[in-house]
Design a protein around this nucleic acid. Structure first.
Length: 395
DNA sequence: TCTGGGGTCCTAGGACCC
DNA sequence: TCTGGGGTCCTAGGACCC
């Protein structure tokens, strides 16, 4: 029996969601004019998170610097993102999708797959997909694309065809006609680097890729990746719609400076801030981490990273920070200007408590008190400054 | 024009053990 | 005295996704 998978993708998600909110507040519909969602427009480093269709027609693209977009369109409407609102919109659309099939996999904040194989009751898949799309539009006020196919890959490729507010099919038998003429870059998992490598070898379309022997492809991209690309280019994908949301495997936070910084005090302040954020998040989710990693990005975007293992899993900010400081000192010469600094934790466990250590840091009680106060304050007010934190330490 | 922030997975080499 | 092969863990780096 043929599977029927839907991929539902919100059109210009953040922009649509902000538009709905502004409309509710009595403002004009920003979807109808060149507009974008971005971070602080006065910061030369902020980039575009989402662009309206009129903006896209002017050549404005996601991930482009705001300063650049303003040059090509001085009248561009710029809206600041509102994460809490986006989460509510996301939840609303996911729940409507779930009412069509409980076999649902959320792929990102604005995309999900549903397995409709046993849910059609003899109806035409396109008709059902259209009904879903209309229900979201009527109920929530924003549009989606629905891709309909016999597996997840094809459904996802289909939802990426003409936008917005459309239903498209991509059945296996339609692959030669609808998918093979597309550029190789349009295939899922083919990014910039892989595209360059393939095109340099004369493989320009997904069809070229589909017809290429596995042996030659393996030489270009490695055996494992080659196998996946070969299957996908031929429209095959047997991965299931995963209903279980797998637990996070890592947490990280990073900060990009307005200007590159080289003063170790500035770098340490930033490292402190990201350590607080990451440690707070793992405590909130009841994790402890065994691996700490840091990375620094330089002016030319080159990155150095370093990681280390902790003696035992922890969620204590001070312990994570101590190791992060140590390995940062090994990774960075202390003088080269830094564009971005980040900290991550991984090898997570839910261990209820740390094992008693013979060499337990005598300041441990202080550390835990910092964290307790930080968590209380952050939960209440969203953030806490280093000065307040240092005050908490003194008490 | 000058590039954010948060994730996942894969690879390859070295250390160490049996 | 000189040597094989396999397994696991760690690390750094690179590719991709939204």
């Amino acid at each position: 029996m043929r599977r029927v998978i839907f991929h539902i993708d919100v059109n210009s998600a953040f922009l649509s969601w902000s538009a709905v909110k502004l409309l509710q507040e009595g403002q004009a519909d920003i979807r109808l004019v060149p507009s974008v969602v971005s971070g602080d427009p006065s910061d030369r480093r902020s980039i575009i998170t989402a662009a309206s269709i009129p903006a896209k027609k002017l050549g404005i693209k996601t991930a482009q610097p705001v300063s650049m977009a303003l040059r090509s369109c001085p009248s561009l409407v710029i809206v600041r993102g509102d994460w809490d609102w986006y989460k509510r919109c996301s939840h609303g659309f996911i729940e409507i999708c779930r009412s069509y099939s409980p076999v649902l996999q959320q792929f990102s904040i604005d995309e999900c797959f549903i397995d409709m194989t046993f849910r059609l009751a003899g109806r035409d898949p396109v008709e059902v997909a259209t009904q879903l799309k209309e229900q979201i539009k009527q109920t929530l006020g924003f549009t989606v694309n629905v891709g309909v196919g016999s597996n997840k890959l094809l459904a996802k490729m289909a939802s990426d065809f003409e936008k917005p507010d459309k239903v498209h099919t991509l059945w296996e038998e339609e692959v030669p006609q609808k998918m093979w003429p597309l550029q190789v870059r349009d295939l899922l998992w083919v990014g910039k680097k892989t595209e360059a490598r393939l095109v340099a070898n004369g493989i320009k379309t997904i069809g070229d890729l589909a017809k290429l022997g596995l042996g030659s492809l393996s030489q270009l991209v490695g055996q494992k990746f080659a196998l996946q690309l070969h299957e996908n280019a031929n429209g095959r994908d047997d991965s299931p719609v995963e209903t279980e949301t797998s637990e996070a495997k890592s947490y990280s936070a990073e900060r990009t400076f307005r200007e590159d910084l080289s003063d170790p005090k500035d770098i340490d302040r930033a490292l402190f801030n990201v350590a607080c954020i990451v440690a707070h998040r793992i405590r909130k989710d009841h994790f402890r981490a065994s691996t700490v990693s840091i990375f620094v990005k330089y002016k030319d975007f080159s990155v150095s990273q370093k990681q280390c293992q902790l003696a035992q899993p922890t969620d204590v900010t001070a312990l994570i920070l101590a190791d992060a400081r140590r390995i940062l000192a090994e990774a960075w010469d202390g003088v080269t200007p830094i564009r971005q600094v980040g900290l991550g934790v991984s090898k997570l466990t839910h261990e209820a408590a740390e094992q008693m250590s013979l060499f337990e840091d005598p300041k441990m009680d202080f550390y835990r008190e910092w964290d307790r106060q930080y968590d209380a304050k952050r939960t209440r007010e969203g953030r806490m400054s280093r000065e307040e934190f240092d005050e908490a330490l003194k008490r």
